[in-house]
Design a protein around this nucleic acid. Sequence first.
DNA 1: GTCGAAGTACACCGATCAGTGTACTTCTGA
DNA 2: TCAGAAGTACACTGATCGGTGTACTTCGAC
Lengths: 188, 188
Amino acid sequence: MTTTTQTRKPGARARLIAAAERLFYAEGIHAVGVDRLCAEAGVSKRSLYQHFGGKDDVVTAMVQARADEFGRQLTGENRSPRGRVLVVFEALDRGSEAPDFHGCPFVGAVTELKDRDHPAARLAREQKNRLTEYFQAALIDGGARDPGLLAPQLTLIFDGASAHAMMHFGSTPATRQAVETLLSAHGM
Amino acid sequence: MTTTTQTRKPGARARLIAAAERLFYAEGIHAVGVDRLCAEAGVSKRSLYQHFGGKDDVVTAMVQARADEFGRQLTGENRSPRGRVLVVFEALDRGSEAPDFHGCPFVGAVTELKDRDHPAARLAREQKNRLTEYFQAALIDGGARDPGLLAPQLTLIFDGASAHAMMHFGSTPATRQAVETLLSAHGM
DNA sequence: GTCGAAGTACACCGATCAGTGTACTTCTGA
DNA sequence: TCAGAAGTACACTGATCGGTGTACTTCGAC
């Protein structure tokens, strides 16, 4: 029960994951070494290798942590079906304006890792499916025509908008307009 | 005139850029060292530093080369306005099916470099603008309503489709359908 | 009070990183 | 033919890479 029990101060593992989320996203996975990671986490190198099998394992745990947060955000509680779709793009718009925005962390991880079979890449891929399923559920609730087609289209827009924001330092009104056009084309 | 004159065998510079296009795309910019790059190009390390200021300079030249090829492909000759839009997505669909597809090289470069002011990142950004302008010109020719809004939306779909193909090993029919929906929503 | 788990400090490993210095060869154009 | 440009071979730099071995400390539970 040691892992689930609440401790006063965050353990080495948690601090390493937090530092990995920050550094790998801001500077890149290959650009940040384990020495640097440990230093920023305030954790000894020895501890890293007691909690993780290696750097790749830290990367996987970091993506897993991102996935957990993503799942937690993906509720759309107290919203209409249409609102549950739009809330995703509103959140992206907000995030895009931050000066340290570097695109979708899941797409970024796969881009850097290249290896499609990397455990972290598998996790990242699952998050895209999760987003599409979230959209689809909202679309079904809203009575949209062909939710199975519209849902992946919204994920397409999401990833395109992420890329745009990364390349051009901010969001574009074209995103919202595209979502509206696609929604109304499907009677929603 | 030495640089513009056609020589029998490709020089060291050209071979380095060709190797850089291949290796940096397939394995990542940070994952490929200069020794490795020179070995694959069949060029001595000394020659690299005679032609380029450093690795960053090679990266920039590689993105420039990609940009030149991109511009050459972006003609859409002998096509209807609508066809000039669709040909872009047909080309992406074809490229997406390759097992060594890793998404848009321009987005990938910016993702890896992080630094928005890097010369290669600037070049990459310009290519996105170029694509949007290409779309806009075709849309104007086709008499679309609000080409200034629709064009960036098509670029959004393009980048979303690239990301999807990288994450899921191939294209999706949702892309084409989304393009059709947006086009017809703008009377084209 | 003591025992074990958790964590730290730090030196160390071979490999690779980007980049340089020096001396040699190979090709080409006048 | 011969000068100069283009390129190669290779040793070498200091820094960093991911990862390990060993000995020490800190701290909470029983």
